[in-house]
Design a protein around this nucleic acid. Structure first.
Lengths: 349, 349
DNA sequence: TGCTACCATGTTTGCGGTAACAAATCACAA
DNA sequence: TTGTGATTTGTTACCGCAAACATGGTAGCA
């Protein structure tokens, strides 16, 4: 009976509106989509009918008939990671203003899951897609190419993008951090990593490269886990690293800020002085980093801006197929050296 | 031209698949939706055609024809608030497993915006809706009622829910924190608040109530702002409160954990000993709270579980209209008293 | 052998809109 | 007055798929 009520009541269609207003359904449709093409008199009548009936257009019918979905598909690897939330905010702000809806999926850092979800997204005829990173399955890439919609891969620079690309070099950022720590006189530099997604791996490789240039590589100073990142995990990994390194540690580069915070707090408990005894650097530069004591060094990444730009790129491609704007955009990053990495000894460089 | 290519190529329809497989389009449709109703022989042929053509079903046509959208609409006030991300994760986990898609909107804590977005959502014929809190506009409530889809209001307990409700009492939680601080011998208890959404107001009212029962209310100890919450903001507000209170402060209740962290860091810089000189308590119990030094007291809220339950409630209502499960569910909370609120003096209670 | 029952498949129809075209109305200059 | 073009409104067809019903074939049984 509830179901019947539902069925019975849900049926306020454009035809109902038109009938009530005494016009053709086409005029009713125009009142909604092209009000300037309808005389004021009829417009009012139709609007009144819409209001009294509580008419809500059926998006499916509209999209089917007009072949326009006003949907932009977005795939991110994690909903609970602050980094992506800020990117998302940028995307929502820009696309929302332009009258587009976002359909968002969470791939859980899993390419197979991503493939499944992209298929789902494509079945909603998105007019564009924004996806994360470069580790799509071949099938996924093929689908996206065949779909012929503008695609932006974001968060990192991609060698051979499916279509467009915005991001920055995590490899270079990792290199820069390690190089900065070396320049501050550190030689035994540890690395803490969690979740270990492709971008974390790139940061790790950059770090390794910088160290190997000075023959300072040391695998026992790398502590990583596939488990998700958290402040608690940062403490755990820090404790493990401290043990493995037998206290012989000049600095630690954490693959993200949660780990860095956790590492800092753990050091405080272990009685390790930061930066007196050891330097610390995180990644992403979340809000808290600048305010904790000592303030924590980190790599500032323009996340909101990246979302904005990614959205602008697809909208640009949509607007008039105008090849305005570059296909690949390196948005850069800034290493913020703060109190946690004030040189404890004179800079050698 | 690109557009033409797009148009031309996008047209892999079910009919194309059927033609290639030498069957009727209905058989092709069944192969996808009810494979057990098609002979293995034809099923293989159709599947092969699907694969070679790269066919992706058109969701709009499907939903229009079948009157089923498999969509659940979700409205949250902020994408960048970790609290909602965890709730969302619960929702996505449950609905995803059940074969539903989530369409998510961000109301920016604005009822008018929410109304607009709910209208948009309803135009996608969602089979259920999950929304946040109780401060909808009347028009919004009417729309939701008329839509006749199951609706869950989550995050707080609502007096007269539109349909279903899951949450906990922010008023009671605020009361409990203040009462706990009173019980620890504090008399001058400050309140820091940011963004001041309805739930924060409820916490504030609970706090006021506990204080007024002891005639300890003092408006100069309440520092709030409409600006968004952040660790930095927590520091700012703490500084302001410290000034206003002229150092006469036994404890501070922060309306959320970001503020609490910022307040703690600021206290460290101001040389205020926590908990020796002043107690501190936050709200939500994010990951970092248990690991910072001193560990921070907070109100633990089961966010992921709330998302899970909210999703289960709508799915339950959907499954068979079975009136299984309650319409209103108080999921509760737990005040976690940690080092930041160890009584500096003997408990009076 | 004829009958029903059931399964696998095909045909028809319509979901609720909009594009494209057709028709009617109006304005205004020749 | 009439013609011309612009403006407003209506008519028709169809978007791509699935529900409902129709059909033909096969098996089981008396």
């Amino acid at each position: 009976m509830l179901l019947d009520a539902r069925k019975a009541r849900k049926k306020v269609t454009l035809a109902d509106v038109a009938r009530m207003a005494g016009v053709s359904s086409m005029t009713a449709s125009r009142t909604i989509n092209y009000p300037e093409k309808v005389s004021e008199q009829l417009r009012d009548k139709v609007q009144q009918a819409i209001d009294t009936l509580g008419y809500i257009p059926n998006q499916f019918a509209s999209s089917l008939a007009s072949a326009r979905s006003h949907v932009i598909g977005v795939a991110i690897p994690s909903l609970s990671n602050t980094v992506f939330n800020e990117v998302l905010r940028g995307i929502y702000d820009v696309t929302g203003r332009a009258g587009y809806k976002v359909v968002l999926v969470d791939t859980h850092y899993c390419p197979a899951e991503e493939e499944r979800l992209v298929r789902t997204l494509l079945s909603q005829s998105p007019e564009a897609m924004i996806i994360t990173g470069a580790d799509q399955t071949d099938a996924c890439r093929t689908m996206l190419r065949r779909s012929c919609v503008p695609v932006v891969q974001m968060m990192e620079m991609v060698e051979a993008p499916i279509d467009m690309n915005i991001g920055f070099s995590h490899y270079q950022a990792g290199y820069d951090v390690a190089a900065g720590l070396l320049a501050r006189g550190c030689e035994r530099i540890g690395f803490l990593g969690a979740r270990m997604d492709p971008r974390v791996h790139q940061r790790l490789h950059g770090y390794r490269r910088a160290l190997s240039e000075r023959q300072l590589n040391n695998k026992t100073l790398e502590v990583t886990t596939e488990d998700p990142s958290s402040v608690g995990m940062g403490g755990q990994l820090m404790r493990q690293l401290w043990t493995q390194a037998a206290g012989q540690l000049d600095a630690v580069f954490c693959c993200n800020d949660d780990l860095a915070l956790g590492a800092l707090f753990e050091c405080q408990r272990l009685g390790i002085d930061i930066p007196g005894q050891m330097l610390l650097c995180g990644f992403n530069d979340m809000d808290a980093m600048a305010h904790v004591n000592p303030s924590l060094s980190s790599v500032h990444t323009p996340r909101y801006e990246m979302g904005v730009k990614a959205a602008e790129m697809v909208l640009g491609a949509l607007s008039d197929e105008g090849e305005t704007g570059p296909k690949r955009l390196d948005i850069g990053y800034t290493v913020k050296w703060r109190d946690s990495a004030r040189a404890p000894r004179p800079l050698t460089a």
